[in-house]
Amino acid sequence: MGLRSAVIVFPGSNCDRDVAVALEQSTGQAPAMVWHKESDFPEVDLMVLPGGFSYGDYLRCGAMAVHSPVTREVKRRAEAGVPTLGICNGFQVLTEMGLLPGALLRNADLDFVCRDVHLRVENTQTLFTHRYASDQPIRIPVAHHDGNYYADETTLDALADNGQIAFRYVDEEGEVTSGANPNGSLKNIAGVFNASKTVLGLMPHPERLSDPQLGGNDGRPLFDGLVEALQ
């Protein structure tokens, strides 16, 4: 039996099918697609909150999704240790749920940014990132208007000390520069873990470059790595 996964689908999610394709490619079986009104769903090894614009980004990105029936169950399971991945809007939802520290603000230059970026994997000793090398920048697309990571100084220091920074925006040579930062994120942070490294949120979209036919494959080790770690 392969890795069992679930993709949580909110009204306004639009990367749910993309991530389902990437998951099926790596796990060998289609994920359960779980609609936001479900208050329960089958037992799974991995939960994924996809990108998109849940509830039209009303009030704040991710704010309304927190109060969906399904989200209570996602939170319960994530707190019990079920690995959880949030991509783009999914990352915003995880911060609003309080499962990940910090918040995502409007991009510093106010533009919607949609292009490939380079990332450095800051912690390769996790379920999600063990297939990556820390000295090898990866290329993954971003597509967001509100990806400007913010946390207060104390939280930023704690994230660094605990290995909770997952990815940082870098240039092609792997250097953290302001020019490589697409949205103004503090410390160029593109993704963070919770304290136990079982929850990951990131703004870039690994599912969009998980097949060479799509122009790149740097997203795939994340999904393959999860399969290897969780089976």
Binding site: L59, R60, A63, V66, H67, T95, E96, P101, G102, A103, L105, Y150, A151
Partner: peptide, 8 residues
Amino acid sequence: KLLANTVI
């Protein structure tokens, strides 16, 4: 609970 995100 909803109207503000008190992190920011």
